[in-house]
Design a protein around this nucleic acid. Structure first.
Lengths: 187, 187
DNA sequence: ACCTGAACACCGTTCAAGT
DNA sequence: ACCTGAACACCGTTCAAGT
C-alpha cells in the first residue's frame, strides 16, 4: 500500500497554514515537508488552489465528524463554537469562507452539509420557543452572518477592543439571542 | 511641482485591485502602469503592504468624504450602503477589513472615524426609538457585525443563494432592524 | 529627493525523463 | 501510477549608481 503521499501533502499544508497563514503555504515547502520533490503535488492536485480546496474540505469534514447532533439546547454552543474556531484558526477560517475560483465538489458538499445541520438546530430552537417563528433557513442565515461577521472582525482586530462598549464576538451572539428570545415568547 | 508619482502609484494599485483582486497587485505592474520603474514604489512606501495600507486608508477617507451626516433616518441606508460597497468592491473590502501586519496610523484613524460616525447614527436611532436602549457602541458592533458577515458571506458565494429561504444581505439587515424595533418600542 | 538597472532568493507551473 | 530535475516566466526586495 502507498504511504499516502496525498495525505502527507495535506498535513504539511495544514501545518504551514496554521503556522504562517495562507501565504506561507507554498507548494515547494509543502513538498519539502512531505518529503517529496517540489512538484510532486501536481501528481495529486491540478493546482495549488485545488490542494487548498481539498484541505478546506477535509478540515470542514473533520469538524462535522466531531459535531454533536442538532438540538435546541445546542444553539448557543454551536454559535460560540463557530466563533472559537474562527479565532483559533483564523487562516483556515478565512481560507474556507473566502472566494474560490476553482469549485471543489467536496468543499461545496461539506459546506452545504454544515449549513443544513445548523438549520436543523435553528428549527429545533424555534420549536422550543427560543427563537421566533419564520423561515428557518433565513433565520439561520441571520445568525450565521452575525457570528461570521463578529468573528471575522474580531480576528482581524476590527472590533472595538478596549474601554466601554467593548464586546467579544461571543457577547454579540448572546445579545442577538436575547433580542430574539422575547420576540419568540411574544408571538 | 511634482507630477505626483505617489498618487499615480496608488491609482494604479486601485485599478489592479479592482480588476483582478489583491493578487493582481504586484509592485512591478503598479510601477509599469504608473510609468516608472519596477522599484520606484520603494521611494514612496517601505513595502508592498505599506502601499496597500495607504491605498486602503485613501479609499476609506474618500468614502468618509462622501458620507452624509449621521441621523436616525439614515441608519438603514448606512447599513445598506455598506453592503453595496462590499459587493461592488469585494477585493477592496476584503483588503481593508483583513488582517494587517503593518499598522498604518492613517488606516487606523480612518477606520476609527468611520466607526465613530456609525455609533452616532445608532445613538440617533435609539433616541428616535428605532433601536432599543443600551450601550450604543455595543449595539453598533452588533449591527456592523451582521452587515459585515452577511456581505462577506454573500460576496464569496456562501450565503444560500437559491430557492426558499434565500435572503440577500440587505434582507438580513432589514430582518435584524425589524427584530430590534419592537424591542425598542416595548421598553 | 527621486529614479534606474542589475542582482538575489524565491514563487507556480510545465515538460521531458525515469521507475 | 507516481516521482524527479531542469527550465520558464514571474515575484518582493536590496543595492550600487545616476541626476
Amino acid at each position: 500500500m502507498a504511504p499516502g503521499t496525498r495525505e502527507a501533502l495535506l498535513d504539511a499544508a495544514a501545518r504551514l497554514l496554521d503556522a504562517g497563514g495562507v501565504e506561507a503555504v507554498t507548494l515547494r515547502e509543502v513538498g519539502r515537508q512531505a518529503g517529496v520533490s517540489h512538484n510532486a503535488p501536481y501528481k495529486h492536485f491540478p493546482s495549488k488552489e485545488a490542494l487548498l480546496a481539498a484541505l478546506a474540505a477535509r478540515e470542514l469534514e473533520r469538524r462535522a465528524d466531531h459535531a454533536e447532533p442538532a438540538s435546541a439546547e445546542r444553539l448557543r454552543d454551536t454559535l460560540h463554537g463557530y466563533i472559537r474556531w474562527a479565532l483559533d484558526s483564523p487562516a483556515l477560517f478565512r481560507l474556507i469562507f473566502g472566494p474560490w475560483t476553482v469549485d471543489s465538489p467536496e468543499l461545496h458538499h461539506a459546506a452545504t452539509a454544515a449549513q443544513a445541520r445548523f438549520v436543523d438546530t435553528v428549527l429545533a430552537a424555534q420549536q422550543a420557543d427560543l427563537l421566533p417563528a419564520g423561515d428557518p433557513v433565513r433565520l439561520a442565515s441571520l445568525l450565521r452572518s452575525l457570528a461570521h461577521g463578529a468573528a471575522d472582525l474580531a480576528s482581524a482586530g476590527h472590533l472595538a477592543a478596549n474601554g466601554k462598549g467593548h464586546a467579544d464576538p461571543e457577547d454579540l451572539v448572546d445579545d442577538l439571542l436575547a433580542y430574539l428570545h422575547p420576540a419568540a415568547k411574544a408571538r
